[in-house]
């Protein structure tokens, strides 16, 4: 996949505070890239840098093929940003808001109207298009803001906490929208605190606290930190001899009892699990189910980010 965003030692200082410290990133076209870090880590500052809203103190970046600092207007035409606050004109209708922004992005009349209709329908707001935004719920405003950020079909969409404060239904709409964007070959740069969401949506994740701590796929991060674990649920419950047999199987690194299951850590479960199943059955155990054990991304995050602190 082509690289659509590349930074080189991107740095932003505000007086004595270094908000973004020498960030080197490569984001590929068509991927959902998660940018995770604690409050005050500099995530929003990174977004503003990459959208050419503020200038770096040092370092550089190439965004959608344009050089930051030299081709800022072109960058802004190629990217969309969902800011922390929806920032909508509340006295005006949903339709008027989108038409205004479509004009700012240089879309002509028919295209502006077609795009506004498309995104209002996509976000389920078409029926209320002529109502003032002030009458909308928080979730509807957030969906409006997402529609605005994507109106001009940006190559890269920067989303800052897109589902914060949304009800499950609205959050689902937003997640489906992100998946649809990826399907169109657009890149999504997702800043979020919602680790479950990042786990579900992101192809790769960067853990960030003023500087990049780690970048990898969620699965690789889990495997590296926690190994690959499989849960064997036995009926009625595992016996001590079952655990002894399991530990003796070649390829098993570790095994332990946990809430009526045997948790087995093995680097190559595809090879080890059939052996384990056969061993347990031969030993007279009754297997209720076998399932891959994934540590929560939250555990991974805490281990990496808090460990780094």
């Amino acid at each position: 996949m082509k690289t659509v965003l590349r930074t080189e030692k991107l740095t932003k200082r505000f007086g004595a505070l270094t908000a973004v410290d020498g960030v080197d990133l490569e984001v590929r076209e068509g991927e959902v890239f998660g940018y995770l870090g604690p409050n005050g880590a500099g995530k929003t500052t990174t977004l503003r840098l990459l959208c050419a809203l503020i200038a770096p103190t040092s370092g550089g970046a190439e965004v959608a093929g344009f050089r930051l600092g030299r081709e800022d207007a072109q960058i802004r035409a190629q990217v969309g940003i969902l800011t922390e606050q929806p920032g909508l004109y509340e006295r005006q209708s949903a339709w008027e808001n989108l038409i205004f922004y479509a004009t700012l992005y240089g879309l002509n009349g028919p295209t502006a109207r077609a795009q506004s209709e498309r995104f209002l329908r996509l976000m389920g707001l078409w029926e209320r298009r002529f109502e003032a935004v002030a009458t909308f719920s928080r979730g509807m405003k957030q969906k409006m803001a997402i529609a605005r950020s994507a109106l001009h079909e940006p190559r890269i969409l920067f989303l800052d906490e897109p589902t914060t404060g949304l009800d499950p239904d609205a959050a689902k709409t937003v997640r489906e929208f992100i998946v649809a964007l990826r399907g169109e070959g657009r890149t999504v740069f997702l800043c979020t605190h919602n680790l479950d969401e990042a786990d579900r949506l992101c192809d790769r994740i960067a853990f960030f606290r003023h500087k990049i701590i780690r970048i990898d796929t969620p699965d690789h991060l889990r495997a590296e930190l926690y190994g690959r674990a499989t849960e064997f649920r036995l009926m009625p419950s595992p016996r001590p001899e079952d655990l002894v047999r399991v530990k003796a199987v070649p390829g098993v690194h570790d095994a332990r009892l946990e809430n009526g299951s045997i948790i087995v850590e093995a680097p190559d479960p595809l090879r080890t699990n059939p052996l384990l199943i056969r061993t347990l059955i031969d030993g007279g155990a009754q297997i209720a189910f076998v399932t891959e054990r994934k540590p929560h991304l939250e555990d991974v995050y805490l281990k990496i980010v808090e460990g780094h602190a």
Binding site: E29, G30, L107, H152, G185
Partner: peptide, 8 residues
């Protein structure tokens, strides 16, 4: 993907 925006 292609962006359709330009300077107005």
């Amino acid at each position: 993907a292609i962006a359709i925006a330009r300077r107005p």
